[in-house]
Structure formats: structure tokens, C-alpha cells
Design a protein around this nucleic acid. Structure first.
Lengths: 230, 230
DNA sequence: CAGTATCCGATGCGATACTG
DNA sequence: CAGTATCGCATCGGATACTG
């Protein structure tokens, strides 16, 4: 049971463990979230083997859910959802809300993973509440092993941009905000199980840095899409 | 690929073939439709082996989706959905609508099965447009092998009742309406892909019998829950 | 970067038979 | 009626290594 898990805290993953063909819903979720390249998909699904990902993509292609193409510029293969694939969004969302509501307490916080959390945060971050310049936020997970303890989000928020980079090695920029917490707390916030304010009051989250960035963390931190109604 | 099919025309089955753990969504569908006993479930899932059904029920029980109890009167085991299980309805419906929309043309009409169709019709039949007395409708599928060619629905529509019986052997009552068609046509009507009126006009469906029952067939024939929006 | 190739143990699951 | 027991093949899928 344990060995076969997806190692993900995402509610879709938890629902899929019993209901779904292995990895299939998660591949679709990654595509729905906007990943298009093979190794981007692998990044969102760290435990999938390349052989199986390839197989799943071919199956979904046969089913008419995925279309394989080549990027005009780079010539790299890209995978996109067809209209039928996009239409699976309600199914995946329904699974996610159900998992969030009914499986969260059992599984969510047993499948912590800093890289998936940070990768999701990078993807959903909302730069608009941030000042219109480059912003660097450092995350320190006190309870995580040395190699994955520190992360940097570098948000290029100059007007017209909005790109977010995720680094595991110090990018060298001045840090605008230091976030220190434990992985479980940050994941719970991300899942909408608690708020930034509550975590600060509990003493499980500390913020040091620019007050205007600190104050709006709950806003620029885009929450998991399943966090709202859960 | 063919041997592993569910042999069902239900859109949930078609969607499950690729997306779901084998049989799991269909077991849930049966429970959502109101089956509670082991052999009722088997009836709605003719190709499942008893061992696998048993296994799935135990898995769903572990997951908190199904609760096993004993019928007070008979002492027989009954399986019911918990609140979490009922809450899967949106997921199953989303899968069904998706399957209906995107997989229907490929698969629906390749998985014809008279017993499943009649069993579904029995379950969803709406007696209220029928006269308030016992009504017997005979179905004749011209293209089906002798053993499954003829079916009778006996609707006890006396005030306060509403029970529907399905027979494969002549119950001996006077038949109020004779329906003669082919299996594909009747399935298409059931799926909402065509109407009774259209089938009559095409000449693929003939009705002989009481005019008031004939005229309201589209009404008393409750359609598949996926027929509406598809 | 984007996959294939190969291996092999684990399991999934269908078929059949049997039991309280 | 409501399952369990057993068998055995097929496939699934993880790990690892390799290729254009």
C-alpha cells in the first residue's frame, strides 16, 4: 500500500489511488495545469518511470485526449490536451474536491514532498499583489533534509512580465522575504487547511523581510485549486 | 483490448476502460443506482467475477465509501454507500457525461447487451404517465438470439404501488403494448441518441397496442441519466 | 532533451469450483 | 443467497540502462 503510493499530497492523487488506473489521472492533471513537455510532466510526477509516462501518453493519444505535436520554434515534441482532454477538467476537479473533502485527513499530510509543493507554488503563484519589480522569496523548511531544505522563488514582476523561477541553489539576489516553517505547515496552508495568519500565530511560520510582501503573502501565494471549497 | 471490455454501453463504463481501476467505478455506479445486495450488484455487472466484486467491496469499505450491514428483516448482508460514497456521485456523473460526449460514437453501440438494457430500463422506468393499473409491455428484439429475444416489463401501477418486474419468460398477462425493434435502436433511444418518434418514422421500431401507452412511451421510458445533456 | 529497451517480480483478474 | 478458495496466465509497472 505504501510502496505503491504516488507520493503526492494532491487530492487527485489520493482519490486516484483507489479509483483510477495508475498515474492516468495525474498525467491528465499535469496537462490540465499546463505542462506540455515530457520532462515537465516527469517533474510534476517524480515517481513515474519514463517508460510508463510514455505508455500513458500513447494511450491517451489513442483515446483522443492528448495530441502530440512539435514546437515550431524548438522542434521539441509537445503534448497538449485535445478538446476532449480539456473536457476532462470537470472530472479531474470532481475527483480532487472529493479527495480533498474525504481523504485529506487520512493521506494528505502523509505525502509531504517539498519539491512538489514548491513546483506547484511556482505554477500557481499570483504576482499581482507583489511590487512591480523582481522579488526574491526564500523558503526554509526546518524539518527537511539538507538537500531540499532551502528554496528560492524569483518572481520577475516588472511590468509586462510575471515569470516565476524556482531555484534550489542560492540565486544570489537579495532576499525580499525569508519564510521559515516546517513542510507540513506550508503544505497545510497550500491546501487551504490553515492560513498564513494562523500559522504565524501558532509560531510554526516565521516571516522576515519587506512588510508589504509579508502582509500579502496569503494573496500572492496562489492556493491549490482544491483549497477553496474543500 | 476487446476481451478486457466491460461489455456495457454505459458511458461510465467506457470512460472507465482507460481512466479507472478495473470495475471500481462501475461498482460505485451500481450502488449509486440503488443496488445493495451482492447478487444485485452482480446482475448489473454480469462479467465481474464474484471474487473480484468481493475484493472491490472490501477496498471501498476500507476507503470509507461503502458500509456493510445486515438487513434487519432478512438478515442478508447489504452494501450501502456512506456519505463519502454518495459524494462520489458528481465524479461518476462527470465521467458519464464525458464518456457520453466523447466516447459514445466509438464504443457505445459496440457494447450492446439486452439484459443490461432491460435491467436499466426496469430501474429507471417512470410509471406515472401510465394508466393506474397493471401494465404489461413486451419487447421483441428481432436481431437478438432466441434466448434473449423477448422480454416483459410488468408494471404494477395501481395507486400506491409502482413496482416494476422484468421477465424473460412470458408472465402470461395480457400484453398492453408490443414493442418490436432491434437492440441497437432501443439502446440508442435509451441513450438519448434518438427518440421513439424518430425510430418509428425510420421504421426501425414498431408499437402495437393501447394508444395511450404507445403515445407516451418516450415519457414512461425513463432515459439513461446520461441521456439528457450528452 | 526525449524518450526506448530490457528485465523481472508483483498483481490483477478471469475461470472454476466449492462452502456455510 | 452470499460469498471464499484456488489456480494460472497475462499484464502491469518499477528499476535500470541505453540511444538519437
Amino acid at each position: 500500500m505504501e510502496v505503491r503510493g504516488y507520493g503526492q499530497f494532491c487530492p487527485v492523487a489520493m482519490a486516484s489511488e483507489v479509483l483510477g488506473t495508475r498515474w492516468t489521472f495525474l498525467v491528465i492533471r499535469e496537462l490540465l495545469c499546463g505542462s506540455t513537455r515530457f520532462n515537465d510532466l516527469r517533474r510534476g510526477l517524480p515517481r513515474i518511470s519514463p517508460a510508463l509516462l510514455s505508455k500513458r501518453l500513447r494511450e491517451l493519444e489513442t483515446l483522443g485526449v492528448v495530441a502530440r505535436a512539435h514546437d515550431a520554434a524548438s522542434g521539441n515534441p509537445v503534448y497538449r490536451l485535445t478538446e476532449a482532454g480539456e473536457d476532462l477538467r470537470p472530472v479531474v476537479m470532481a475527483m480532487g474536491f472529493w479527495g480533498q473533502r474525504w481523504l485529506e485527513s487520512q493521506l494528505s499530510l502523509k505525502n509531504l514532498d517539498p519539491s512538489l509543493l514548491m513546483w506547484d507554488m511556482r505554477r500557481n503563484l499570483n504576482p499581482s499583489p507583489l511590487p512591480p519589480r523582481q522579488v526574491t522569496v526564500q523558503f526554509l523548511y526546518r524539518d527537511v533534509e539538507r538537500g531540499q531544505r532551502r528554496w528560492w522563488l524569483v518572481i520577475d514582476n516588472k511590468p509586462g512580465s510575471g515569470a516565476v523561477d524556482l531555484c534550489m541553489i542560492d540565486p544570489g539576489y537579495d532576499v525580499d522575504l525569508h519564510v521559515a516553517t516546517d513542510l507540513r505547515t506550508m503544505t497545510a496552508i497550500w491546501m487551504g487547511l490553515m492560513t498564513v495568519r494562523e500559522a504565524i500565530r501558532d509560531g510554526t511560520l516565521q516571516l522576515v523581510g519587506a512588510p508589504e510582501i509579508k502582509a500579502r503573502m496569503q494573496q500572492w501565494l496562489g492556493l491549490s485549486v482544491f483549497a477553496r471549497e474543500g
